[in-house]
Simulated assay, not measured.
Amino acid sequence: MPEPLPFPIRKECPPGACICGRDELLADPHADIRALRLTREEEKRLIARIEGITSYADLMHVADLMRAQLGIVLRIAPRANEVRTVRGLSIRLDEQPGLCRKIRQSVPAAVRRCLERSPDIVYAILNAHDLLTDAGSASDAG
């Protein structure tokens, strides 16, 4: 019987409902199982935390914490087409064993809701990708 883990982990999904690979991760003694620490209760707390974000710095801080504590990589970038709304941003989690399909959907959705409420964060994201650097100088010239 496998050794019990020193922390609670996410309960297994119904058969066929997810492709997280939870059982394979638990069977491999060298696997990175940090993503499994995101139980349903912890997921709710994370979603609430994301939805409460009010600045770009706070969003980056939460993304850094997700990477450090859970091994989850959040990517937010402008899509190839023109960005007119929050829908023009690509918000996704990198593929990772142990990351439940529900989390792959709920975290980006929470980020999108946060960005819809805080357009300043969207502008900061665009600026971080050098999409607004010319816009400021063009408006100053007129």
Rank of each mutant, 00 (worst) to 15 (best):
P6D: 14
P6H: 13
F7E: 12
F7C: 08
I9L: 06
I9V: 06
R10W: 07
R10P: 13
K11G: 07
C13I: 00
P14C: 00
P14D: 00
P14A: 00
P14S: 03
P15K: 07
G16K: 07
G16P: 08
C18Y: 02
I19H: 12
C20I: 09
C20E: 01
E24L: 11
L26M: 14
A27Y: 05
H30L: 13
A31F: 03
D32H: 06
I33D: 14
R34C: 04
R34Q: 11
A35C: 13
A35M: 13
A35W: 10
L36C: 00
R37W: 10
L38S: 14
T39V: 05
R40L: 10
E43M: 08
E43W: 03
E43Q: 10
K44S: 12
K44V: 05
K44A: 10
R45W: 10
L46E: 05
I47V: 00
I47F: 00
R49S: 04
I50A: 00
I50N: 01
I53W: 04
T54K: 15
T54P: 13
T54M: 14
L59Y: 04
M60G: 06
H61G: 00
H61R: 05
A68M: 14
L70C: 11
G71T: 02
L74W: 11
L74V: 00
R75N: 04
I76A: 14
I76T: 10
A80G: 12
A80T: 11
N81C: 01
R84E: 09
T85F: 06
T85I: 01
V86T: 12
G88A: 14
G88V: 05
L89I: 01
L93S: 08
E95R: 05
E95W: 08
Q96N: 13
P97Q: 13
L99D: 04
L99E: 01
L99F: 05
C100P: 09
R101D: 03
I103T: 07
I103F: 01
R104V: 04
V107Q: 12
P108D: 04
R112W: 03
R113G: 09
E116Y: 10
R117I: 06
D120R: 13
D120P: 09
D120A: 08
I121S: 11
V122Y: 08
Y123W: 15
A124L: 06
L126N: 10
A128L: 06
D130C: 14
L131P: 01
L132H: 07
G136A: 15
S137V: 12
S137P: 07
A138K: 09
S139T: 11
D140C: 14
D140T: 15
D140R: 15
G142S: 06
